[in-house]
Every structure is written in structure tokens, then in C-alpha cells.
Simulated assay, not measured.
Amino acid sequence: MRTYFGLVHQEGGSAYGVQFPDVPGCFSAADDIDDLVANAAEALSLHLEGEEMPPARSLTAIHTDSDVAKELAAGAFLVAVPVIALTGRSERINISMDAGLANAIKQTAKARKLNFSSYLADLARRDIMG
């Protein structure tokens, strides 16, 4: 997993727009600030699909970028956006948990027409991505 910093702009009553200084050409938007990181993470994943992930600068390095500094001075702000580089291959793992919790997960997954692994992977992905 890699974390990129998104530069967020919002003017008046418009949507929040996000651009990524370390991923040129990738943009995202959200009408609600609570959807900002999730939408940005999805945009990053789609933009980088099948591509080599560019290096991600640290927060300190982003702050010292003169272009970013100008945007921040004009009212923009930064958000940390995680992106998971999916490989397309499955990996078998062994986990342990309370039997009652495992049973509840199995029942919920079945009700949603998912298997145990898919359900847990989806929950983890959504939690990581915000």
C-alpha cells in the first residue's frame, strides 16, 4: 500500500476537487467532504491500474513544493489517500478469530451472496481506503 497526498480545492458551493501532485493527470471530486478520500482512492486505483505506481513524496516534501505551497496559501488543503496495488492473484492465508464472530461473518457473507474470503477482503479494502 502506498499513500499519496491529494491537494483539495473547493470554491463557494462547488464540489471538492482533488489533484495529486505525485500522480499527474489523476483527478477526483466529491460533493460531500465525507466522500472525499473514498472517491480519491477510487480515482487513484483506476488511474494507476496496470501502471507502475510513481513514487509518493512525504508530507514534508509535498509542503516544500513551491506549486503546492502556493495552492495551500490560497486555501487548498491536503488529504492522505491510500492506494492498494492489486495484483490480480489470490493468496491463501490462515487467520484466527472467535468462533461466534466467524459464524456471524459466514452468515452475513452468505446473505450478501459472497464467500467468507470475498466478504472479509471487501471490508478490509473499504476500511483501508476510507
Rank of each mutant, 00 (worst) to 15 (best):
M1E: 09
Y4M: 08
Y4H: 08
Y4L: 07
E11V: 13
V18R: 09
V18W: 11
G25C: 10
S28H: 07
D31T: 12
D31Y: 08
D32P: 00
D32Q: 11
D32E: 12
A38K: 11
A38N: 06
N39I: 05
N39K: 04
A40K: 03
E42K: 08
E42V: 11
A43K: 03
S45W: 02
L46R: 07
H47Y: 14
E49G: 00
E52P: 00
A56C: 05
L59A: 01
I62W: 01
H63M: 10
D65T: 07
D65K: 07
A69M: 04
K70W: 03
K70I: 11
L72K: 05
A74I: 01
A76E: 02
F77S: 06
V81H: 03
I84F: 13
L86R: 13
G88C: 02
S90G: 01
I95A: 11
D98N: 15
A99E: 14
A99T: 13
A99L: 10
G100R: 12
G100L: 09
L101M: 13
A104H: 14
K110E: 15
K113A: 15
S117Q: 09
Y119W: 14
L120R: 08
A121V: 14
L123S: 07
A124L: 15
R126F: 11
I128N: 04
G130T: 14
